[in-house]
Design a protein around this nucleic acid. Structure first.
Lengths: 199, 199
DNA sequence: CGGCCTTTTGTGCAAGCGGTCAAAAAGTCG
DNA sequence: CGACTTTTTGACCGCTTGCACAAAAGGCCG
């Protein structure tokens, strides 16, 4: 535990948040260390000192993204009917992506982006992504099981299979939306899926 | 039309196929021009002479990928019951990805990979991807409409919405599979979706 | 107040990148 | 056979990348 020495001149958490936004907008490869240095208003050496190399920095940002997402997911599914909550979980990316794609804002789902760009060649990234997938399906499957027990959700498939299908859908939706989305069509597809889950 | 001059020493189509495999395995950014030069066994200048720059080369490879995929898709849906064919369309990536992820083989769907890596910053790539999405949904929606007319497919949603949902699913499945897939779980999810489409 | 420890600052660097070019080579055609 | 056209070849270029390092600076503790 280092307790003495020159104090850090910037807010580490805030820097990580800003880095997340940058990585989210441009992806890993297209974001240079110089970009980060410029956007975070700190010097090269400070960045390396605080976060290690670029890859570590990115993975930390993704972890932050997932933690935030998981928190919201758990909260959304905590109470009330399951299907409306799930509908919202799927519909949110559909809505937010439309205008985000125009601007230079965040694009798609960071987990999906990481899957596409880093996973094939980075074992650590793969673990992070796989862990997130597992947590997503567990959380959603638990909610669906509750829904089945209460007669809200159809029992024609196991909650696990339904949760896996929802994972595919939300990842696919986030991905496809980057190429420009017809929001109405996307919402119709989401509704079709939610309807199909109804008991 | 140029008809004289030194003849090309390599097969252009075959070079494009090999380049596709390389881009498919590693993605755009992680495949260097040097990698291509090594794998295709031709010199740098020849590559630039035949295909233009790296980006053009990549886009040509993606186009080749899509043309091949579309051809197979149309063929699979050409006759017979729609749902078993669609089940196969979704199940194929689930099966082939499992071992492909271990080896250094092709990964996921090239359209999805392109969406994640190039689309945010490349208008031409976006058009290519959007065009592919549109063609996919049109082909699938046509098949589903036939299925609805024949009483095979439920009318609880429009064919367009169902096709859009299938696009999300197949893209999500291909993407998620890159992080390592439980094939049985994925197939269960696919079955759940196909069952939900049944009349 | 002076030693200590850590962060900051800014320069510097080797490697790899995508891309270019001029000369040599290999065909075709008059 | 010699002019012409195109491809091949391999060296070369400028640039950016991720990263290292030495000196300066700042706050804590004895």
């Amino acid at each position: 535990m280092a307790r003495t020495g020159r104090p850090r001149a910037f807010d580490k958490d805030q820097a990580l948040e800003r880095a997340l936004l940058l990585f989210w907008s441009r992806g890993y490869g297209a974001t240079s260390v110089q970009d980060l240095v410029d956007a975070l208003a700190l010097e090269r050496g400070s960045l390396y000192g605080a976060f290690g190399d670029k890859r570590n920095f990115y993975l930390a940002a993704v972890q932050l993204y997932w933690d935030t997402y998981e928190h919201r997911l758990v909260e959304a599914l905590a109470s009330g009917p399951v299907l409306p909550a799930l509908r919202e979980v799927l519909a949110t990316p559909a809505r937010t992506e439309e205008y985000a794609a125009e601007a230079g804002g965040p694009q798609g789902c960071m987990i999906g982006n990481t899957t596409a760009e880093l996973v094939p060649q980075d074992a650590e990234a793969r673990e992070l992504v796989a862990r997130s997938h597992a947590r997503f399906t567990r959380i959603v499957a638990d909610a669906l099981r509750r829904g089945q027990a209460e007669g809200e959700v159809t029992r024609s498939a196991t909650p696990e299979a339904q949760a896996q299908l929802l994972l595919f859908t939300v990842q696919g939706l986030s991905l496809v939306s980057r190429a420009g989305l017809d929001t109405a069509a996307a919402l119709a597809a989401v509704d079709a899926l939610i309807d199909a889950l109804r008991a």
